[in-house]
Simulated scan of single mutants.
Amino acid sequence: MANGMVIAQTTSDGEDQARALARGAVERKLAAGVHIDAPITAFYWWKSEVETAQEWRISYMTTTDRLPELEAWLHEHHPYDVPQWITLPVSGGSEAYLSWVVEETTRD
């Protein structure tokens, strides 16, 4: 992974909730930046049935060092019983951007 950067993703059932989850993580320096993708359509199994829902994908730019705290914070503030939580390794990128992510997620 490039400088230990990862992209962590979850989803939310509304734009306001997605914005709150994004802002809260950035304010706490758990992520350097967050992208919210406009509504996507999700299909999934839930309680033995196929469900469909409109969701907003939230992508956190963070580091492996901050990942455990971000995950704990997300589970505390997320309204879903079982929120999506996946991480994607970053294998390369602009050194300036990768350094910025590390700098912005470093604890004061």
Rank of each mutant, 00 (worst) to 15 (best):
G24L: 09
N3S: 13
A53F: 04
T10P: 05
V101I: 15
E15A: 06
V90K: 05
A38F: 05
E55G: 00
I36S: 04
E103G: 05
F43K: 08
L21Q: 09
S12L: 02
G33I: 02
A20C: 01
L70G: 11
S48Y: 03
S12E: 00
M61T: 14
M1V: 14
T63L: 09
L30F: 11
T52V: 05
A96F: 03
Q9I: 10
V90W: 12
G92D: 12
I36L: 02
T64E: 14
A38M: 03
S48V: 03
Q9K: 10
D108M: 15
A72P: 10
L88G: 01
Y80C: 10
I40S: 10
D13N: 11
D37A: 12
E27R: 15
L98F: 00
E104D: 06
Q54Y: 02
D37V: 13
T10S: 02
L88T: 12
T11F: 00
A20E: 09
G33R: 11
T106D: 04
H78C: 04
P68E: 02
E49H: 15
V90I: 12
I86W: 01
S94A: 03
I58Y: 00
M61S: 12
A2P: 11
W45N: 11
H35E: 01
M5L: 08
H78G: 01
M1Q: 07
T52W: 01
D65G: 10
T62Y: 01
A32P: 07
A18C: 03
P89H: 02
E76C: 00
N3E: 13
A25E: 01
Q84G: 01
Q9W: 05
D37C: 07
G14E: 05
G92M: 07
G92H: 07
R107W: 09
R28T: 03
E95P: 08
Y60K: 07
V6C: 01
K47Q: 14
A22H: 00
R107L: 15
L70W: 09
D37G: 00
W100S: 12
A2V: 09
E69T: 09
L98G: 06
T41K: 13
A8D: 03
T62F: 05
S94V: 02
I36E: 10
A2Y: 07
A53R: 00
A8K: 08
T41N: 10
L88I: 08
